[in-house]
Amino acid sequence: MDSRNTQLAVGFFVIFGILALLFLGLRAANTNFASNGATYTLYAKFDNIGGLKERSPVKVGGVVVGRVTRISLDGDYYEPLVEMTISQEYDEFSDTSSVSILTSGLLGEQYIGLSPGFIDDTVEMLENGDYIHDTKSALVLEDLIGQFLFSQGND
């Protein structure tokens, strides 16, 4: 084997490997969010977060604008506190916005639905580190069934 041909073959091999990495990175993985771009952080307290997980998406009308980055218990009453990282591209949510925990499909994963609130002169915009106060908890199937049975029993 001629040394130059060997080097050529090895060079092509390495290029092949890098192309494969590029293909995986650009075609198979999400490069548009979470790894690059400026973000800011919002917080929301819920009564019950259901099956929400870290890295669950935050959506506005079905469009992903951010991700849940941390879930912890907060305060004297141990309320679930969800930390959301939102893309800086969408930084004009008003103080009156609300978040609720929704489920995609019947059996799908849970995500946070963010509904932008109204804007007039008296409301302020949400900034980095702010809390969203208007929250709606996840639907827990067992609670629903329990309430249903309870209301049946009262009749």
Binding site: F13, V14, L19, A20, L24, A28
Partner: peptide
């Protein structure tokens, strides 16, 4: 050096 490159190629071709 070779095997990680081969694994990347394997995954890309498999996808």
């Amino acid at each position: 050096y070779s095997m990680p490159l081969l694994a990347l190629i394997f995954s890309a071709v498999g996808i």
